[in-house]
C-alpha cells in the first residue's frame, strides 16, 4: 500500500507544478539558483516551499474534511486566533512552549466545535464553519485589542523563521505533517472510513463506521492544522496581526485540495497531491513577484493559470486527449 510507484507521481498535478516552475524560470533566469547562506538554503525555490507551507498545512486538514463531503471555512480565522493567543501569552510572560500549547489547544477546540456542529447537530458544513469564520476573526481582534501584538520569543520566532538541516522550519513542519497524516490515513483504515463517509454517510454508518466520531476527529485535525499554520505565520513576522493573518487563506486551501484532485463531493482524496496543489499556487505567487510585472496583473494572471490547470484536469480534456490519441493511431 505504501509503495509509491514512480508512474503515479507523473500526473496532471506534478506536470502543472513543473510547468509553472519552468515558466518562472523563463521569466526569471535565476529562479532555480539556490545558495547556502548563514547556515540555510536561500533562493526562490526555497521561497516557494517556505511561503507555500502555511497553505500546504491548511490543505492537509482541508483535504480530509472535503473528503468527508464537508468544507472548513474557518481555518483562516482559526489561524488568526491561534497567532493572537500565542503572541498574547508570550507577551504576558509565559514561555514559548506554553504559547504553542495554548495556540494548539485553541485550534483543537475550534475544530471540535465545528465537528460538533456538523456531526451532532447535522448542520451543513459550509454554514457550520462559516460561524467561526466570521466570529473567529472578531475573537482574535478582541484578544489582540485590534493592534499587532509583537514579540521576540525565540521559540515562536524559530517556528516561523528558523531552519533545520538548511530547510526553513515551516517546510520541515509541513513535510512532517504531510508524512504523518498520509501514514495515518493510508496505513490504517481511517482513509477508507473517510472516503466511505464522504461517499455515503448513511451507508457508512449502517456498515458500522462511527461516522459522528470520525467527522469530529476530521474537523479537529483541520483546526489543529490551522493553529500550526497560525503559529508559523505569526512567528514569521514576529507579531500577531488579527486583521490580516490567514485572511482568505481558506479559499487557497480549498483550491489546493481541488487542484490536488480531491472531489468536493467527497470520497476520493490525496494528501500529497493537495500539498502539491498548494505549491502550485505559491509557485505562481512567487513567479509573479520575481517576474516584475505590475501588480495590476497579479490576480488576472493567477486566475488565468488556475483556469488552465483545472481545464487540463477536467474530464473533457481527458476525453479530448484519448480522442486525439485514437485519431493519430488511425492516421498512422
Amino acid at each position: 500500500m505504501m509503495r509509491i510507484p514512480l508512474a503515479r507521481l507523473v500526473n496532471t498535478q506534478t506536470i502543472a507544478l513543473v510547468g509553472v516552475l519552468l515558466l518562472n524560470w523563463i521569466l526569471f533566469p535565476g529562479f532555480f539558483k539556490i545558495e547556502w547562506q548563514d547556515g540555510r538554503l536561500f533562493g526562490s525555490l526555497i521561497d516557494v516551499l517556505n511561503r507555500g507551507a502555511p497553505v500546504a498545512i491548511l490543505a492537509i486538514g482541508m483535504t480530509a474534511v472535503i473528503a468527508t463531503k464537508g468544507v472548513d471555512l474557518s481555518v483562516g480565522a482559526v489561524m488568526a486566533m491561534a497567532g493572537a493567543v500565542a503572541a498574547t501569552l508570550v507577551v504576558g510572560g509565559y514561555p514559548g512552549w506554553v504559547a504553542v500549547a495554548g495556540a494548539l489547544t485553541v485550534g483543537l477546540l475550534c475544530g471540535l466545535w465545528n465537528g460538533a456542529l456538523v456531526a451532532l447537530l447535522d448542520i451543513q458544513p459550509i454554514i457550520a464553519t462559516l460561524v467561526l469564520m466570521v466570529a473567529g476573526r472578531g475573537i482574535a481582534q478582541l484578544i489582540t485589542e485590534g493592534s499587532i501584538v509583537t514579540f521576540s520569543d525565540p521559540t515562536l520566532v524559530f517556528i516561523g523563521t528558523g531552519s533545520f538541516l538548511g530547510l526553513p522550519m515551516p517546510v520541515v513542519i509541513a513535510l512532517a505533517l504531510m508524512i504523518l497524516v498520509t501514514l495515518a490515513v493510508r496505513k490504517t483504515a481511517i482513509g477508507l472510513f473517510i472516503e466511505a463517509v464522504g461517499v455515503n454517510r448513511s451507508a457508512a454508518t449502517l456498515a458500522g463506521i462511527r461516522s459522528r466520531l470520525l467527522l469530529i476527529a476530521v474537523y479537529a485535525v483541520s483546526g489543529l492544522c490551522a493553529a500550526i499554520a497560525g503559529i508559523i505565520v505569526a512567528g514569521d513576522i514576529r507579531g500577531a496581526d488579527a486583521n490580516n493573518a490567514g485572511l482568505w487563506l481558506e479559499l487557497d486551501a480549498i483550491l489546493a485540495a481541488v487542484i490536488g484532485g480531491t472531489s468536493l463531493l467527497g470520497g476520493r482524496f490525496s494528501i500529497v497531491m493537495s500539498v502539491v496543489g498548494a505549491l502550485i499556487i505559491q509557485a505562481m505567487n512567487t513567479g509573479i513577484l520575481v517576474s516584475g510585472y505590475p501588480p495590476e496583473f497579479n490576480l488576472v494572471v493567477k486566475a488565468g493559470m488556475i483556469t488552465l490547470i483545472l481545464m487540463i484536469q477536467s474530464p473533457f480534456a481527458g476525453r479530448l486527449l484519448t480522442w486525439f490519441g485514437r485519431n493519430r493511431r488511425k492516421g498512422a
Binding site: D47, R51, N244, N285, V290
Partner: peptide
C-alpha cells in the same frame, strides 16, 4: 520594481523576499 504588499506585514516580507532574489 513595484509590487503590492496589501498593506500587511507578512505580504511586505514575502514581496521583499521576491525583490531581493530578483
Amino acid at each position: 520594481r513595484s509590487q503590492t504588499g496589501d498593506f500587511t506585514r507578512s505580504k511586505g516580507k514575502e514581496v521583499m523576499e521576491g525583490f531581493l532574489k530578483a
